[in-house]
Nucleic acid binder design. Structure first.
Lengths: 225, 225
DNA sequence: TTAAATTTTTAGTCTAGTCTAAAAAAATGA
DNA sequence: TCATTTTTTTAGACTAGACTAAAAATTTAA
């Protein structure tokens, strides 16, 4: 397989993310908004990726990845997450600072580099946001018991295992309220009128979180309180 | 200053290398051959870089860098050499393997990244080929006493302080004959008919080296023998 | 010094990736 | 169901960066 352009790689990665969320075909418009691009540009590229047999594309019906497309997407995600881990654990970056740099580093093309980096970091299983790092062969260990904070039961004690890295503002907000990976929370009360949720950090203070926030945090159930 | 494309950065870097060698204007053709490109493409790009005030370009008379162009070129070289150092000292790459990967990594755009990497590596002064690494402000410490092996006096003892990294074949040749950085040699005899040179590795064997090789190695004088 | 050789530039093309505007298909809802 | 809205595709254009072929400038050498 010939080397892909950065743009092609970004398309594959985004199709992977979007189809993983819904587990079905990815629409042209959803790709356009995620890639900050126009629908017409997406159509062009999908046709090109379809010719290369990396996506299955049906006119007016969206697309999804072929086996080979998925394999490549997973390798890009592997690179992204290993670089993020490197930045945080070796270069002392904050978790909110790593995303943009990793978006660049994920396109570096060298199998030897990424495997050496993996070894150097001691084969980490999760990146700084709690997302699983695919191994060399593309296997991904999804954390089984993970649920969105918004879906957690009232009066349960939970641990933060993942935060959505897409929004810098969100990461800064979480950082400031000490809502970081590994932190444990009590889920106190749900407010249906605005879908907000009150939590207390174990050994810390009580905070009311908006829907936007509780949708972007994944937690693991620990116990009833 | 707006972010430059990879291509623009490569032009600046190459102009810097070529003008450093001759310390005068760089011709269109010399750039074309170094960049594996055609003279007409070079002309186009030089006009563009000239508009951006990064090179001084005079039709039919070649070019050289402006202050700003040189500043940028030096930062790219800093990145290239820091990444090479990282690959060799942290990820156990061989010195002959690092060049191509560093060519990609040098375009990653993040001041924080490169300064953190510099600190992580403990502010190295030279890269794995013996070339000086510019500091954050663009200062380069040239090794004063450095001369090409081809110019070294017969019957002197010298130390290898730099090898030209441009040719993979050369690096492999040097590796195989244990002609690596820090190694000491006796310069035994020059053969004017083919410009070859016989040396003996201190504590090792005698080798006859071609002009091509002795031009690509820089040494430091240690003593007479 | 001038004709030939070399180098460099210009002119015109090409590809990748993007865009806008218009057309076509699909989805929605009265 | 069928008209309206939304989504998607097509058509045509633009930019960056490269190329070939031909023209122009410069350099070399007789």
């Amino acid at each position: 397989m010939n080397r892909l352009s950065h743009s092609e790689e970004n398309y594959l990665k985004e199709i992977f993310h979007l189809s993983g969320l819904t587990d079905k075909r990815v629409s042209t418009n959803s790709l356009a908004s995620r890639l900050n691009s126009k629908a017409s540009s997406i159509t062009d590229m999908l046709q090109k990726l379809s010719d290369k047999k990396l996506v299955k594309y049906v006119k007016y019906k969206g697309c999804d990845l072929t086996k080979e497309g998925e394999r490549i997407a997973i390798q890009i995600i592997r690179k992204h997450r290993l670089w993020e881990t490197f930045l945080v654990s070796k270069l002392s970056f904050g978790w909110e600072e790593v995303h943009d740099v990793a978006e660049q580093l994920e396109h570096i093309d060298s199998a030897k580099l990424i495997d050496s980096l993996d070894r150097f970091l001691n084969y980490p299983k999760f990146d700084p946001h709690g997302d699983p790092i695919p191994d060399k062969d593309g296997n991904i260990v999804y954390r089984k018991s993970k649920i969105k904070l918004i879906d957690a039961a009232v009066n349960s004690r939970v641990e933060i295992v993942r935060v959505n890295e897409d929004s810098l503002a969100l990461l800064k907000f979480l950082e400031r309220h000490e809502l970081t990976l590994g932190i444990e929370l009590y889920v106190l009360e749900k407010f249906p009128f605005d879908d907000s949720l009150s939590i207390r950090i174990v050994g810390g203070s009580e905070i009311n979180l908006s829907k936007k926030v509780t949708e972007s945090i994944a937690v693991k159930f620990i116990s009833k309180i």
